[in-house]
Simulated scan of single mutants.
Amino acid sequence: MSLPTFEDVLAASERIHPYVHRTPILTSSLLDSWLTPEEMEREGAGHRIFFKVECLQRTGAFKLRGATNVLAWLKENDRLPEHIVANSSGNHAQAIAYAASLFDIPATIFTTASVSRVKAAATEYYGAELALFDTRTQADDAVQEAAGQPGVLWIPPFNHSQIIAGQGTAALEALQDLKQVDGVFTPVGGGGLISGTLLASRELCPDAQVIGAEPLIANDAANSLRQGRIVRLDGSPQTLADGAATPAVGDLTFPFLQQLDGFYEVEEAQIAYWTQWLQHLLKIHVEPTSAMSMAAVVGWLQEQDSPSTTLVILSGGNIDQQRMQQIWAEDYLDQPPIL
């Protein structure tokens, strides 16, 4: 499969328009003030952070964009399958289940027994069947075997040109609204979101830097970039940012990762810290994977000498009780953000 282009992102935007929300953009003047150095404030200027809120998307995450785009694209080409299978830690599972229901196609999701209960329940509610395995590798092997059956189509979570194009529509919408930004930030799991974001950003805002963030304890993408080849994780990392715990990036997404302007590895305490603060400041439900990008924003802003405008793609907002307890095991709200 060839690498997608900006034209593919535009086509995806038209294709999925009837099925997805054009999500809002939020700001926090208090956060902007906290993250602006005093010398900038004295001159009447400051940093501005805009949040594209995909946690308010149908199914609660950006993943619906890619899943819907694939199926709508297949329908355009008279290639809809009899059955869909997918492997996912949660948000892609919900997206496939929901999108499959839109096109009246049965779906089976292969995942681990440790999948978020909230995400698992929603996946089943949308009509898909869950197949649970002990490890992500076992689930990945099983989905490939299932995909070999007649009439069955496997839709991967990120390594598909139409998935990447669909995910890029979030940044496309945001940049159409904002016109000009200096930096664009997304979390990185398999790389589908940031790959689509890079396509949209390079076309609509070519001077903006595009920057990724992933958990330090699940840093396969960072290791891949350092070594110049795709590197897989050993085992299943127990990171709060479960949406970024993929074993490896894809052969389609890796070339886009290599074009990024920056990449940050984020410690677990910082993931919990920013999840708490974004929920408090924006008054919305934010996944740890989404909030992780703020650690990269702060690191990047510390290197800027002039007022900068940043766009953060808040990728999702699906959190179960167990994860929420882990996030709030320590209260970070007595430590306001500073640059």
Rank of each mutant, 00 (worst) to 15 (best):
A170E: 03
A296V: 04
E14N: 11
M40K: 08
D320Q: 11
V312C: 14
F254G: 05
Q144K: 15
R58D: 09
W73N: 14
V312A: 06
P18Y: 00
Q322D: 11
A120G: 03
S116K: 08
Q279E: 14
T5F: 00
R42W: 06
Y264L: 15
Q259L: 10
A61N: 04
I49M: 09
R15T: 05
N223G: 12
I217V: 10
L30C: 10
E43P: 06
Q57W: 07
A107Q: 05
Q258G: 07
A120I: 04
P247D: 08
D334R: 12
A245W: 00
W154A: 13
Q149V: 06
F263W: 01
I163P: 05
I338L: 12
V70A: 05
A269V: 08
A296H: 06
R136K: 09
R22E: 13
A272K: 01
Y126M: 02
D251A: 14
R79H: 06
S236D: 15
A296M: 09
C205K: 08
G262D: 09
E287Q: 10
D177M: 15
I109E: 00
L132E: 04
E303Q: 15
E265L: 09
N77Q: 12
I230A: 11
A45V: 08
Q270I: 04
V118I: 07
A72N: 08
A296G: 11
A170T: 05
F133M: 12
N91P: 07
V231T: 10
A12M: 04
T23F: 02
Y273S: 14
